[in-house]
Design a protein around this nucleic acid. Sequence first.
DNA 1: TTGTACGCGTTATCAA
DNA 2: TTGATAACGCGTACAA
Lengths: 346, 346
Amino acid sequence: MKRKITLKQIARELDVSISTVSKALKNSKEISADTIEKVQAFAKLYNYRPNNIALSLKNRQTKTIGVIIPDIVHHFFSKVIRGIETVAAKKGYNVIVGLSNESFNKEVINMEMLANGSIDGFIMSLSKETLKQQDYHHLTETINQGMPIVMFDRIVKDVNCDKVIVDDSKGAKKAVEKLIDLGCKEIGIITTQDYVSVGKLRTKGYLQALNENGLDPNPEIILKVEDRLISEEHLSEIESEIEDLFKKNPKMDAIFAVNEVYAVTALKVARKLNKKIPEDIQVIGFTDGVISRHAIPSLTTVSQHAYQMGAKSAELLIEKIENEDFSEVHQTVIIETELIERESTL
Amino acid sequence: MKRKITLKQIARELDVSISTVSKALKNSKEISADTIEKVQAFAKLYNYRPNNIALSLKNRQTKTIGVIIPDIVHHFFSKVIRGIETVAAKKGYNVIVGLSNESFNKEVINMEMLANGSIDGFIMSLSKETLKQQDYHHLTETINQGMPIVMFDRIVKDVNCDKVIVDDSKGAKKAVEKLIDLGCKEIGIITTQDYVSVGKLRTKGYLQALNENGLDPNPEIILKVEDRLISEEHLSEIESEIEDLFKKNPKMDAIFAVNEVYAVTALKVARKLNKKIPEDIQVIGFTDGVISRHAIPSLTTVSQHAYQMGAKSAELLIEKIENEDFSEVHQTVIIETELIERESTL
DNA sequence: TTGTACGCGTTATCAA
DNA sequence: TTGATAACGCGTACAA
């Protein structure tokens, strides 16, 4: 029930001034050994801790990082957060999380809420709606107010800030090349609508790999799944789109999927149609999460190193926060993807 | 580059006093229409927003909730967070996340860091180490300082605070009864070591179901997996423990697993040993996450309604924060589990 | 060696 | 109708 103790209360109890207490707690040599001991003993007894809010106000920095992501129930994003949190904790920062839920409005509201002094900088990945509307005023405004931002994964070029991305295009290309190496001739892709930047880039890599290897892209086996929230209620609709793809293209001998859910759904459809994996059809997915690891057969995937993306983002942001000098130069860090081979490829 | 604008700056520009500006922005009728208009126009132009930190200091409340969990890369916990965040956002609260990573020390450090004014209350689930050591001084101390705590899932009775749990024992019992109804006679369990409270309770429910149905528990088919971090490097060791279980008990016709990973690993082992699911062995897991949903065959599970647990926790906490009167009465809310039937049972 | 005064940004009370 | 002042909790330059 008792409220936290303050310098003022200690000062009153001990009949000294507030500043004496403050100094004594910091072992200032301005203060006599006697007083120091007395004050520290008392402070310890009452478990005194300076009030973070007061410190924030005084120092004009909160030692906390704001993270805004579209969704937290998502292996990729939660792993990024873990990376952020680890680095943040190491450097004495807290992490405050805002969820946009893929909505532009929630993204804006969350940012405005946090930008008014609650945090020292943002790490964020854009919502689909934001990407679609191409409205980035909330980003540019906070940047103009001198608050650093680091964007990761779902970024946008026009905004002038640090960025951490994966080479989506190259990662996809490597995956498709792997399939080609394994002898596949008719490689299908299950991807998203074009406005999702990462989906577009992965499709680009897919096409590049085909071209450079003298294979003609076949529009019949390029499936751009209609947009809806991944993984929840619409799974069965996605499934039937994929089933169509399989049925109409019996000669297809490989699938590259731009995310886990599409990949594992392909697995499911294949099983339903009595196609053996990897013997009849080989499958590679993008994003290495629990679904891929625990799928049966386990999925070969392109790992984005989500943890490293988070860690790197946090490093960049904290560097900017603590080093005003760097505020003009922005860098884009590319995290290398890695092909993790498992059972869904030969 | 420009720093956020403050009342003081507006006052200086407009050559009025700070308090006049403050009142004008609040449409106080103490202020003349002229002044109000002038001030508001200026404020709008410069996009004035009150500084949250200053408000927190003044109002002695931060409007943010601290959440401490063992791991965020975990479907259950991230779903809880989503529930917390939704309710928090609706009531104007922010969510700050601390990860204990199953370590007692990190849990304590995180709490101390946040307890010094950064937040208005905690929502937390204990780390395994804390459960093991049974040291809860960090909880009781913060409670004594008047900061409300809501514990969920991995709770402990001795601590006097609001709690949100699932009826683990009952949920497990229902699952095992289902298996019995389906004709299973030799139902094995894959569970954790006893100090993990939820594992112990689920095992208890399993035993109850057997007893009440006249089945003798067979210690041979009760596997308490050695403790290690789920899901990461030690998967193959868990797998071989489970494989042993299967091989030594060929008559076993069902498995109840206390979490998703154990359940899906059982699936894998069964496949390896050419046991058909659900024809030869039926499987039910606890915790309804992506792994279960996307497994092939998809897993019948006991859903804990993680989202509701988070939402309820947030409601309880905010009620305590905003209603000092309630601070003495603590309640324990039990969220009903639900059996979600899928392909791994007949 | 200790204390006073000020500032961080805001609001509330009271005085002008 | 407006403004000065105090207070939230802290740290520090400067005065005593």
